[in-house]
Simulated assay, not measured.
Amino acid sequence: MKAPIIEIFSSFQGEGLLIGERQIFVRFAGCNLNCNYCDTNDSKSEKSGTLMTPEEVSSEIKKLMTPDCKTISFTGGEPSLYPEFISEVSKDFKLKIMLETNGTLPENIDSIEKLDIVSLDIKLPEHFDGDFDSSIFLNEIKSLNLLIKKSINVYCKVVILPSTKIKSFKGVVEKLSESISNKSNLKIIIQPSSPLGEWKDINFKLFEFSEVVGQYFDVSTIPQIHKILDIE
C-alpha cells in the first residue's frame, strides 16, 4: 500500500479549534475538488506527491515527535481519499488523530478506524469557478451526521471570501441547521480568506457573518494564524 505524500512536518495548527497547538502534519497529494481559494495548490494533483508506504510515513513522524506534540493531522489535498492508509499509520501511535477534510467522501471518512477530531470544511458556491455541484453540500451533511453519531469531535470551518454574500451564506447556514441530526455540540469556525489585506471593511462584514451563524450554532471567527506568524 502506498499513497502520494507532499510533505511531513511539525508546526503549530494555524486554523480552527486547535489553533496554536503543536502537531505533526502529513499532507497528501490529490484532491477531488478544485476550490479557487486553495492555499496548497501543489497538493491538488496526486502526481505532485512522492509515493510512500505507511511504514515510511510512520518512520518520518517518529523523527519529528516532540514533548509538546499531542496530535497527528492528516491534511491535503484531500486526505479522505486514502482511508486505509490513514488507518494503517494511526495504528503506530497513541497520539490523537485529526482529519482536515472537505467532507465530500462520507463512506471513506466512515471507514477510517481511528479519529479523534475532524475539521470539516463547508464549501460555498463562491468557492468554485462555474456552477456549484449541490452533491458537495449533501455529502458534507452526510459526513457530519455520521461523525456526530459516532461521537467523534467534529467542527465545521467555513472560509469566507471578500466576494461572499451574506444572503447566500445565510442560506447555507440555515440548510446546515435543518440537516444536522444533533447540532447542540457542533461549532462553526468562520475563517476569512488570506491575505487579510485583500479585504475592505472586514470588521463590519465579520460581525455580520458571525451574527448569522450565531442564530443556529456556537460560532468563532479565526483567521489563519500561521499566515500571520509566517510559518508553514
Rank of each mutant, 00 (worst) to 15 (best):
E15Q: 09
S143W: 01
F28M: 06
P223T: 06
I202Q: 03
D42P: 00
D121Q: 10
P192F: 11
K94Y: 07
L33G: 00
L144A: 04
I152C: 01
D116V: 06
F28V: 03
K96F: 12
F132D: 04
F132P: 03
I228C: 08
E100Q: 05
I231H: 03
W199H: 13
L120D: 07
E15W: 04
S184M: 05
T101L: 04
I109F: 01
N153R: 14
Q23K: 05
E46R: 15
S168D: 12
E174A: 14
S210N: 11
F132S: 11
S43A: 15
S48V: 00
V89T: 01
I97G: 02
S179C: 03
Y37T: 06
N185R: 15
S220R: 09
I160W: 00
K157G: 05
V172A: 10
E88A: 10
F169W: 09
K150P: 03
K94S: 10
V118T: 08
I228H: 07
F74S: 04
E56L: 06
E55F: 08
S181E: 15
T53W: 04
E78V: 08
E21G: 00
G49C: 06
A29G: 13
Q13N: 10
S134M: 13
E84F: 05
L17H: 04
S220M: 14
E140S: 14
E232H: 04
S181C: 14
P106V: 11
F217D: 02
W199I: 03
N108G: 05
Y216H: 15
C69W: 06
E21I: 00
P79Q: 01
M65K: 10
I24C: 01
Q224I: 02
D133W: 07
G14E: 12
L99D: 01
I72K: 12
F132Q: 07
D68G: 05
R27E: 06
E84V: 03
Y82V: 02
K47M: 12
A29V: 14
N36Q: 05
C31R: 02
I225W: 08
C31K: 08
L120M: 15
N139T: 00
E55I: 12
K170H: 07
V219I: 13
I61V: 13
F74Q: 09
F137Q: 00
I97S: 03
